[in-house]
Design a protein around this nucleic acid. Structure first.
Lengths: 207, 207
DNA sequence: TTACATTGTGAATTATAGTTCATTATATGA
DNA sequence: TCATATAATGAACTATAATTCACAATGTAA
């Protein structure tokens, strides 16, 4: 059934354990302040063990961001794919991104400390791999905006790429304060997608 | 005329030199990858000299961010202050922020690697001081949004703070790609304020 | 049970970069 | 010009954390 022999499966499991622990620690302390010992402790392994699964700290970080970003993009694309019409696709984008980050807070912190979907690489941490993915995804979103323009939903004079960036920035602008207030409030992030969609499409001004 | 004795003025000058050099280096390499030697070289001083002006690397970074953020906020507030009516104030905010960052690209990179005006502190670098300022500024912007609501310009049902964040995120979303394409294009950042204002007020959808 | 292979361990090693400080250079003012 | 104070220097010192590796534990299979 499972294509992987047990040994390999176990190995993968442990690898995933380490990645999960690393996500925790990186989210809490940031890349540079997180030590391999921190991660080892969190993962309940010895430092040396981490090195059996990842070449070095950078490789660990890259694997982490790459895999999680890949997962995010895959999920969002899937939801967009099954939505009919550009408007529904835009709605799906916002909702699924919110849903993903609501389930992956720790990763969110790492992700946005990298610049997030605007694809802004902070020169402080390793990135590369995932940057590619983000760029391609942005092109994909631009394509949807273009389609929305063809469907006469979005103003034709707007630059699709710039508009895609704009939507990304708007989404981020809602998630960040939400995370900060999280300990206090209990409002769901998904509940905020309406706010973003309306602001994006209709603006904030009284008609 | 000048309230400072020459000695003190000179000292200040040299301090400013160092800050300028540090801005360059931090912008290029990020906080952690920038070494004190890098900064010294850029400033054309010996490492030890830096320590005559700043207690340590962190203090240097904090002074830098604190002063620049203070300057940004001062400038924006001033422009807003002389504008009449909430709409004009919002326009002033966008335009002056764009103007400031167009003049301070290096600082921009540092600033947004800190999370920018959404006031997102990345746990990786020192912040504190300036965070306070940013928070207070956000309150100030929220106040303007509130005023706009009273003037029946902005929809009353929107949360002012959230809307302030939104505007901040929108601004950022335009600056980031602009910076990346900078080497190629020559389009002025200020020229993009119209795009942001229209998107913020009226949205991107066809009426 | 024993031999072998795989996996885990964490103290010791190494590399790097922040910081100090004894020394040198420069400015000041008598 | 000389004496003193102020400022600059950069090699040496330290601290920290990534990485290694000799050894131990555990799993496997005959």
């Amino acid at each position: 059934m499972n294509p992987l022999p047990r040994k390999a499966r176990d190995k993968l499991l442990r690898r995933t354990d380490i990645l999960r622990a690393a996500t925790r620690v990186f989210a809490e302390k940031g890349y540079h302040n997180a030590t391999m010992s921190d991660i080892a402790k969190q993962a309940e392994y010895a430092v040396g063990t981490i090195y059996l699964y990842f070449k070095d700290k950078q490789a660990l970080y890259l694997a982490l961001t790459d895999e999680k970003i890949g997962e995010l993009i895959r999920r969002v694309k899937e939801k967009i794919g099954i939505s009919q019409g550009a408007l529904a696709k835009i709605r799906a984008l916002v909702e699924e991104e919110f849903a993903y980050f609501e389930e992956n807070e720790d990763f969110f912190r790492i992700y946005f400390s990298e610049g997030g979907l605007d694809g802004w690489a902070i020169k402080d941490k390793p990135s590369r791999e995932s940057l590619e993915k983000i760029m391609k995804f942005l092109d994909y979103i631009s394509g949807i905006i273009k389609k929305a323009q063809e469907e006469n939903i979005i103003k034709k004079e707007l630059d699709p790429k710039r508009t895609a960036h704009l939507l990304g920035g708007m989404i981020k602008s809602v998630i960040i304060p939400w995370l900060k207030e999280k300990p206090l409030k209990t409002e769901s992030l998904k509940g905020l997608s309406g706010f973003i969609l309306d602001a994006f499409l209709n603006g904030t001004a009284v008609k």
